[in-house]
Write a protein that binds this DNA or RNA. Structure first.
Lengths: 201, 201
DNA sequence: AAAGGACTTGACTGATCAGTCAAGTCAGCT
DNA sequence: AGCTGACTTGACTGATCAGTCAAGTCCTTT
């Protein structure tokens, strides 16, 4: 009784692609079905509603695309300071790649859908919050490691991770609003500056 | 040939109210007309399309609601440091007020619509970018004044204003994603810390 | 008072929306 | 071989979407 088709996976992938490139509200179930090469009936065999698809798609996107990248970037054998810089670089490159492919900066997929639908679907809002939290975990661990080995000026890792996360969210949003990935080019130094700055206070 | 009705104004106000509380995509022209007490035909007498209404509504919202508040908060006779704190306080209070009225944190209206529709309507994206820039102007002037009288550790007012703006955008987005206005309660000290921090670098 | 134009009305398009359903097909198990 | 249940198909809802239009009303100007 194992999986006999990849229909479900194709729907999840099509959903992320389209919603990330456009928005939740402007992508229709028909569009997602077309791009996945699936008929409407099959869609509703796998997902009870469009919202359910979106929640599942974001979970799947984290697990299959983002989690592995985070694991690699934040590998414990990499110096904490280096982890932060690799993370910033990765964000810049990804947004730039999407910009060149789509003609616009898509921003953070979780933020975009959370900001758009957070006021209308508590489930989508909670899922986007949860996925951002999972990314934040790696950040905080890097700060903790940097505090332990004295390589980073960390006093309150929880608070400082949150500040850096806030700044990063703002930067990605600004890049999207200005439709210019270059806003993110100097993210690394900015984040390190922010970190150094927060120590005396 | 002076204006003989306030229909246009009621449409603009209804549009901002609804789109800010929900999202651009999930608010229909019919809904906006209902809330404004206006028939569909009148709507299209004043605005050629939904996008045109949104652009005009954001411009009007800035002019009638936000510009006066910014002028008051950033009054030149107030100490620069005080201007920043008043600005942070105002943002916290406004988001909290909306949270209590609507049940959720609405975030920055310009960011929300810019993030949602930026990938699909260049006009809306450009307008939201423009309005954010107008707010940024007051911020930068406060930093310049603080640099001149030595009350704020400012070296590059343009760059520092942009960093603070980025952080503020991120904070409002985070408050929306977590649906918790309290995220914004300590904005003032955080912004001042960020400013002090950036000087040595 | 008559004309003209700004504004209003409500009925109307055709497209598209999310979601349903009955009648299938097909693979794996017994 | 034949059963079972997962999956597929395509036609189908009824609601809602943005936008149109012709026939009005009502104020202002002359």
């Amino acid at each position: 009784m194992g999986r006999t088709s990849d229909t479900r996976e194709r729907l999840l992938a099509a959903a992320i692609d389209l919603i990330w490139a456009q928005s939740y509200g402007s992508v229709s179930v028909d569009q997602i079905c077309d791009q996945a090469g699936v008929k409407k009936g099959s869609f509703y065999h796998f997902f009870p509603s469009k919202i359910d698809l979106a929640v599942a798609a974001y979970e799947a996107h984290w697990n299959s695309e983002m989690q592995p990248v985070f694991e690699e970037i934040f590998r414990p054998d990499v110096a904490p300071r280096e982890r932060l810089l690799r993370w910033c670089e990765q964000i810049y490159l990804k947004q730039k790649e999407k910009f060149e492919a789509l003609g616009h900066v898509p921003g953070c997929p979780f933020c975009s859908v959370g900001a758009e639908m957070g006021t209308q679907s508590e489930r989508l809002r909670a899922k986007s919050e949860e996925l951002l939290e999972r990314g934040s975990f790696h950040l905080e661990r890097a700060l903790l490691d940097g505090k332990r080995d004295g390589s980073l000026p960390v006093t309150d890792s929880k608070l400082q991770a949150q500040s850096i996360g806030t700044f990063m969210l703002g930067a990605m949003l600004q890049a999207k609003l200005q439709n210019d990935p270059e806003v993110l080019r100097t993210l690394g130094p900015q984040v390190l500056g922010l970190l150094g700055a927060m120590t005396p206070a």
